[in-house]
Computed example of a mutant assay.
Amino acid sequence: MATSGPAIEVAGAGRTYGSGANRVTALDDVSFTVAEGEIVALLGANGAGKTTLVKILATLLLPTTGRVLVFGADVVDRVKEVRRRVGVVFGGDRGLYTRLSGRENLRFFGMLAGVPRAELRTRAPAMLERVGLAEVADRRVETYSRGMRQRLHIAIGLLPRPRVLLLDEPTTGLDPTEAERLRDTVSELRHDGVSVLLTSHHLLDVERLTDRVVMLREGTVAADLPLAEFAALAGYAAAVTVTIRHPLPELEALLPAEVDVVTRSESAEGTTVELRLPSWGGGMFGRLGALLDRADVVDVQVRPARLEEAFTSFLTRRA
């Protein structure tokens, strides 16, 4: 259902604990929005305030100051309305009844969420199919792998048709295959207009899924950037690792001034140099290619800047 306003609106939100000398500020004047169908990553070091904010959006905590709205409904004054619109997936091994089957868990939590029985009969099988658990739906959850349990958490979170999904560390502990399958499930949600706020220490989740990054630092918004702009904080666009069979002493001197040489090592195969390029532009690669034509190249590897490096660089620059 389309709407003219944001899915999530956080306006000057603050949250403190304790009083006097024991007063702790977890959030301080936090403001940002999430549009309908947008997937936004909420990042920050441990203690930055991410969990506190997610709990406020889930109506498990109240903000001390400011306003937090979900499709215009205030988390303080319209709690029931917010809960109907928000699905929460904290995931992990807890929160499921392991002696029940996946289907039984889904039905139980669906009833708790107020999903009508008639709708459960059709929607539960559809959710199990969507997250790839249809064939094991009647097995006890105690036999499920961690990835299967995580996908069951997603199915439970989606069952009441939430318009906003809060995901906390969805791929923690999953093997690469399970993690990628879970990312596919989450990515498909944008086509249904579901808005997702994702917290994760696995920045591959952020890279694969999100449109934007909101960075918290000591309880405040330190950055709110499109994913590409956040990635650019790494300080380079691409890394090129070149192995040359025979040394080319003048290589570094002939490189464009804006190209950084990060490492240089010698091995039985030859000389390996890692370069960092400021842009992906064809002109830059053309100049580099012309230079390498003069060398006996054994191998060339190219990769984009890693989001982990952008994250670390951001924290370091503003320390």
Score class of each variant (00 low, 15 high):
211 D>L: 02
32 F>Q: 03
291 L>F: 05
73 A>S: 15
83 R>W: 09
260 D>A: 12
305 A>P: 11
141 V>R: 10
313 S>R: 15
22 N>L: 06
72 G>I: 11
217 R>T: 04
237 A>T: 00
309 E>W: 15
119 E>L: 09
98 T>L: 14
46 N>S: 15
225 L>R: 07
63 P>Y: 13
186 V>H: 03
144 Y>F: 14
91 G>P: 12
182 L>A: 09
205 D>W: 02
271 T>P: 00
209 L>M: 12
73 A>N: 14
255 L>N: 07
311 F>D: 03
93 D>V: 12
307 L>W: 07
158 L>N: 07
315 L>G: 05
99 R>D: 11
260 D>Q: 10
34 V>W: 04
109 F>Q: 11
162 P>M: 07
255 L>V: 04
95 G>S: 04
113 A>C: 03
266 E>T: 11
244 I>T: 04
113 A>L: 07
95 G>N: 07
64 T>K: 03
227 L>N: 05
160 P>T: 05
280 W>F: 15
201 H>M: 10
207 E>P: 06
299 D>C: 02
130 R>P: 06
238 A>S: 08
145 S>K: 05
218 E>C: 02
75 V>M: 11
175 D>T: 10
84 R>I: 00
240 V>D: 02
34 V>F: 06
57 L>T: 03
156 I>A: 12
249 P>H: 00
66 G>Y: 13
238 A>K: 14
263 T>D: 14
319 A>H: 08
157 G>D: 09
254 L>T: 03
225 L>D: 02
215 M>I: 09
308 E>R: 12
221 V>Q: 08
21 A>G: 13
14 G>I: 08
93 D>R: 15
244 I>Y: 00
297 V>D: 01
294 R>H: 11
106 L>I: 02
270 G>V: 12
293 D>P: 00
195 S>R: 08
168 D>T: 10
66 G>E: 06
173 G>F: 04
96 L>Q: 13
103 R>I: 01
25 T>N: 01
72 G>P: 13
228 A>Y: 00
145 S>E: 03
242 V>W: 05
111 M>W: 04
170 P>K: 09
277 L>I: 08
59 T>E: 06
42 L>A: 06
167 L>M: 12
96 L>I: 10
303 R>D: 14
170 P>S: 11
88 V>G: 03
250 E>F: 00
78 R>E: 15
153 H>D: 12
252 E>M: 08
170 P>D: 07
72 G>T: 11
87 G>H: 10
182 L>N: 09
65 T>P: 01
280 W>S: 01
260 D>M: 02
297 V>Q: 02
71 F>I: 00
92 G>R: 09
120 L>C: 05
140 R>F: 01
1 M>S: 14
2 A>W: 14
114 G>T: 07
25 T>F: 00
119 E>R: 13
268 A>Q: 08
241 T>N: 00
200 S>V: 13
130 R>Y: 06
203 L>Q: 08
18 G>Y: 03
38 E>H: 04
